[in-house]
Design a protein around this nucleic acid. Sequence first.
DNA 1: AAAACATATGAACACTTATTCATGTGTTCA
DNA 2: TGAACACATGAATAAGTGTTCATATGTTTT
Lengths: 104, 104
Amino acid sequence: MKRAPSLTQHDVTVLAETFRLLGDPTRLRILLFCLPGPRSVGEIVENLELSQTLVSHHLRLLRGARLVRGERRSKQVFYEVADSHVSDMLIDMAFHIHEDHADD
Amino acid sequence: MKRAPSLTQHDVTVLAETFRLLGDPTRLRILLFCLPGPRSVGEIVENLELSQTLVSHHLRLLRGARLVRGERRSKQVFYEVADSHVSDMLIDMAFHIHEDHADD
DNA sequence: AAAACATATGAACACTTATTCATGTGTTCA
DNA sequence: TGAACACATGAATAAGTGTTCATATGTTTT
């Protein structure tokens, strides 16, 4: 029987904010696409078939929450998931959903 | 180096919807409060200092997504986290946030 | 320097959503 | 049966948010 650690008010706020950002399908797709490794904005745009401005806007939010990091390499900017904490979180959640076939 | 399972379009949608619901601080507090065991609506209202109608509205959304289950015992209705999948998810996330003190 | 390329930003709009107020439903007790 | 208790629901509103359009910034190439 696992138990959760007691969270401070601040912890809960941060946690909710993180969830909120993951709660948009477009942002989630962007994050999942960047999970295997750094992706340029252009790659994201082409692969996910989204407008460039939309991707930029979402990346800004994800950056603001330190969920992704962007690094410039000449003309392009490559984004990757910020740290192993975030990627572990995402992978765990992905497994949870994947295993859970108690569909509607 | 862990890898995420490949998710279907439907998986991503469900995952995003779940995150979206967890993304509201009030709902997240309610869920976390119900994590240790079944709580009556009244208990939630008192402990989290929220209005009764607000709690009911949020519980309805959480119920709709099968994140909580409600059981009536005479006058009161007790809510608990739906299954171990959800609670594991929450506990994992709680640990992730808790351990992550790379604050802003 | 200018043009071309890659990405970012700001304003505007449509749409969603959290909260409140008023009221409804179900259950127990007098 | 009626009153009291516990919870749910519907409408209304204020605030937030995703997307698009137009435009700006930064980098390379000619």
